[in-house]
Nucleic acid binder design. Structure first.
Lengths: 211, 211
DNA sequence: CGTAGAATATGAGCGTGCTCATTATACAAT
DNA sequence: ATTGTATAATGAGCACGCTCATATTCTACG
């Protein structure tokens, strides 16, 4: 049964590549599932044996790129550099690294943002951990390292995610030459978040329930 | 030609009422445009002579409710009360009033949030001003009254809108008894926003370009 | 080999939001 | 009344994402 398994993986990869190419060329909506199936050399229905929805294909592409970004970032600099970065600087570096990796998907990111990245979309139990969970975990670690306490509270993470998706939405339509307006917005968003975090009551989740 | 004009207005109203009823009973997705047309006693295609898309029907319902909220709020108290409210308190009162008016639409608000309320969706030139523009205008006035300067900057309004839609998304799924968790989140969001606004550089838009 | 059984591929078909050529209606001019 | 014209209503039909009964292929065992 090894042959078929390898075949399945190859087919899955062909679907992802076909989808990426078509999404980039014509956008998410204009690229039909029949188009993608034809480009991947499978029947229209077969596509849904590999992905439950059209949107899940895009989500998979984005999640893969994001996983790469996290990997690169954690192995990258700023870990024990000569002059340590501030919390705000480190968060900025983290998000900016993610944006660089997501750049090929920028144009059709909104298709995924609208639903899968919503803070209330259940993080599907199957498959790899969701992009949101992975991203928030990385942020939690960064904050905890700077605040020397338990991680940020649930509401803090919710506010962070709201601001982050706001940046992504803006980025997906940013027409400035090198998306510098997005970086400016990110700067302001993080300043807002870190400033609020430093307020006396909101810094961290209590390690254990009081009482 | 008066008769037909009145008929058209009546038909439009029947569509809105039918849609509201069906959206509430079965949700936005489950209520088909054919259902709505049948309930409004028109043919399936006729519905699209009155509204360009299914979503625009929901948007219209929400915008109407919001307009009522603004009207009630501006005629309400807190204008020149004995003890003046702080900026944060006034913004809280404004948003809370909006939530009260939007309560009947809470369950299917996400259908509208996903697209029409996005900060990058072009505010359609035809018809009434968009919900977003109307809301941000009210916020601008409140901020300007407190800051004694020009209104908040573009990026400030963008950040506000991001936080506001974050609250709406949370609210649409809030299962706590009286949606008190939403109010808590709103409280934190506004604290964050007002705190950032008070930072030296971000307070207001410069009245004129420097130089 | 042959064949049973599991895994996978297939494409006709469903219901959807939406379009558009056609039909029906309302009103003005004669 | 009759005709002409603008306007609105109609529903068959389109393309879409997605489903599912059927067909096909692969593997294991006698």
């Amino acid at each position: 049964m090894r042959v078929t398994t390898e075949t399945k993986a190859a087919t899955r990869q062909r679907i992802l590549e076909a989808a990426q190419s078509l999404f980039n060329r014509q956008g998410f909506d204009a690229a039909t599932t029949r188009d993608i199936a034809r480009a991947a050399q499978i029947a229209a229905g077969t596509l849904f044996n590999y992905f439950p929805t059209k949107e899940s294909i895009a989500m998979c592409l984005v999640a893969e790129a994001h996983a790469q970004a996290v990997e690169h970032f954690q192995a990258g600099p700023a870990q024990d550099a000569s002059e340590p970065l501030s919390l705000e600087e480190e968060l900025f570096a983290h998000v900016a690294a993610g944006l660089r990796k997501l750049k090929p998907y920028r144009k059709y990111l909104t298709a995924v943002l609208d639903t899968s990245l919503s803070p209330l979309h259940s993080d599907q139990a199957d498959g790899e951990p969701s992009l949101r969970v992975a991203h928030l975990e990385a942020v939690s670690q960064i904050v905890a390292r700077h605040k020397r306490d338990a991680g940020p509270s649930t509401v803090a993470l919710h506010l962070y995610w709201t601001l982050y998706t706001g940046v992504l939405v803006f980025w997906s339509k940013d027409a400035s030459p090198r998306q510098e307006e997005t970086l400016a917005l990110l700067d302001q968003s993080l300043a807002m978040f870190v400033g609020w975090l430093s307020a006396p009551t909101n810094s961290t989740e209590p390690p254990e329930r009081r009482g």
